[in-house]
Simulated scan of single mutants.
Amino acid sequence: MARDKVKPTHYPFVPFHLLRSAQLVSALIVASIMLYFLWHLTHDHYHLPWTFILLLAVSLLTILSLSTTIVLHCCCGLNPRLNVCLNGCLLVLWSVGFALLSWWSSGTLSHVCNKSNWEDETGIMVCRIYKALFAFTLLGFVSTFAAALLDVFVFRRATTRGKYNQMQNIDEKTAFDAPNSVPGLDPLPYETQKPFSSQPAHTLGATGYTVPEEQFNYDTGYQGTHETRGL
């Protein structure tokens, strides 16, 4: 049975999969931390911060986008136009989420995770989780930004390869199609390019058949009739 053919990809192998792996790892860790925080906040009847909701949404969307595009990449080839749109939208969400997280947890990030600042082991664990959240949110933002740049580069290269240059301009085409010239023999006059003489030839009847004059110049060896040779 013949195997299905997959359209060749324009993406370089190592950068493409390396950036996608960084996106996937950061999205999984951010989503796990957000689910942990949101569960505890809901259990204790606290208000859910918009920053956490946004980070959870963008991490889940990133996982969904990576899962969809890897299936397309393996089955029918990934279109750079589609991937640049997806990564562009994810980049906007990662940028907003990272900016909100940096502003919202700036005080926590500037402190050392010890008992003098967080009182007990639970506080120290929460401090470390916040710093891990910040680090992997930054990784998600940077990896998505780099992936979007790679998509733009691949899209422009694929578009450039599809362009066709003009083979000849109008002047050259006019000179090429001129009836008084033969390609390869210019600039010789047209009359000198003719393979046969243009002088009038003898005409037999009205049929249009012409006899070249050169045939009358040949020596046929004919010396007359047998009576003439006997004399």
Rank of each mutant, 00 (worst) to 15 (best):
V182I: 15
K173S: 09
M167C: 15
L60A: 11
N87W: 08
L133F: 14
T159N: 11
T159W: 01
I33N: 02
I53H: 08
W104Y: 13
F141S: 01
D120G: 12
E227A: 07
N114S: 05
R156N: 13
S65T: 13
N180P: 00
A147E: 06
T174M: 10
A22N: 15
L78Y: 03
E121L: 00
L133T: 11
W94N: 03
S65C: 12
D171G: 15
V30C: 03
Q193W: 04
A31N: 03
C89G: 10
Y209R: 08
I63R: 03
R157I: 02
D171T: 15
R157G: 00
S21R: 01
S26E: 04
I70P: 01
L35H: 13
P12E: 05
A148L: 11
D219F: 05
F98P: 03
F196A: 09
P15M: 11
A31T: 04
Q168S: 12
G162I: 03
S67Q: 11
Y218L: 14
A135E: 00
S116M: 12
P189E: 09
T225H: 05
N217W: 01
C76Y: 02
C89A: 15
I63Q: 07
A22H: 14
T207A: 14
R156C: 01
A27M: 06
V112M: 12
A158F: 01
H43G: 04
H40P: 00
T144Q: 08
D151A: 06
L149G: 07
A2M: 06
I170H: 04
S197Y: 01
L41K: 03
L204D: 14
Y218A: 07
W104V: 08
A206T: 07
L204H: 10
F134E: 07
W118M: 01
D120S: 13
K194I: 10
K194A: 11
F145Y: 09
W39I: 08
V71W: 03
Q23A: 07
V84H: 04
A27Q: 07
P15N: 09
S197G: 09
F16N: 14
I70W: 07
A147D: 14
T160V: 00
G230I: 03
A132N: 13
G230S: 15
L54G: 04
L231Y: 07
